[in-house]
Simulated assay, not measured.
Amino acid sequence: MKEAWTTFAETRKKQQADYFLLAQPYERTDTRIVMPLSNPIQETMLNEFRLELNTFLRERLQNSSIQVVGELRVVEERKMIYTPRDKFEYLSSKNPMFRELKDRLGLDPDF
């Protein structure tokens, strides 16, 4: 499977976006190959060559039930911590005792 996938990816090397998409890890069950996608543009790109990919894999692996499917997944974005206030809020969300300690000692995290 890996060899056939890599061979197809090499045929798409001139289209760098397609090649990059095919270089991403995929999940395989019995006859279903799931490609995790991070945005709708990747889904459109996959749809452009999915039929060709399905045909290639079916012929190469001699399995007519193989199906490549794209699955849109939400990527969690993390907020960057820059200021002392942001750092304090982050740490106090992890450990509420920081907030109590700040109140008891009368500290100001912005200073």
Rank of each mutant, 00 (worst) to 15 (best):
Thr31Asn: 14
Leu61His: 03
Ala9Gly: 09
Glu43Ile: 02
Leu61Pro: 07
Asp86Ser: 04
Lys13His: 08
Tyr82Cys: 07
Gln24Ile: 02
Leu101Thr: 11
Asn95Leu: 10
Lys94Gly: 02
Phe111Glu: 12
Arg12Leu: 11
Leu61Arg: 02
Trp5Asn: 00
Arg73Asp: 01
Ser38Pro: 03
Arg50Gln: 13
Ile81Gln: 01
Ile66Gly: 00
Ile33Cys: 02
Ser38Val: 11
Thr29Ser: 13
Arg73Gln: 13
Thr83Val: 00
Glu52Trp: 07
Gln42Lys: 06
Ile41Glu: 06
Leu37Val: 02
Leu46Glu: 00
Phe56Pro: 05
Asp103Tyr: 06
Arg60Ser: 14
Arg32Gly: 01
Gln15Gly: 06
Arg104Phe: 13
Glu89Tyr: 03
Lys79Arg: 13
Gly70Pro: 09
Lys14Asn: 15
Gln15Cys: 13
Lys2Ser: 07
Met45Asp: 12
Met45Asn: 12
Tyr19Gln: 07
Arg28His: 07
Asp110Tyr: 05
Ala9Phe: 10
Leu105Trp: 14
Pro96Trp: 00
Glu100Lys: 15
Thr31Leu: 10
Arg50Pro: 08
Phe56Gly: 04
Tyr26Asn: 00
Ser64Gln: 12
Thr55Pro: 01
Thr44Ser: 13
Phe56Ala: 04
Arg32Val: 07
Pro96Phe: 01
Gln42Ile: 06
Leu46Tyr: 02
Pro25Glu: 05
Pro36Glu: 00
Val34Glu: 00
Arg78His: 10
Arg50Tyr: 05
Arg99Asn: 15
Leu51Gly: 12
Glu76Phe: 08
Leu91Ser: 02
Tyr26Trp: 06
Ala23Cys: 12
Leu91Met: 11
Met1Asp: 07
Leu21Phe: 05
Leu51Ile: 14
Ser92Phe: 07
Glu100Asp: 13
Pro36Ile: 01
Arg78Thr: 09
Ile66Trp: 02
Asn63Lys: 13
Phe111Tyr: 14
Glu89Pro: 03
Pro84Gln: 00
Tyr19Asp: 00
Leu91Thr: 03
Phe8His: 06
Phe98Gly: 02
Asp30His: 11
Pro40Trp: 00
Asp86His: 12
Arg58Leu: 03
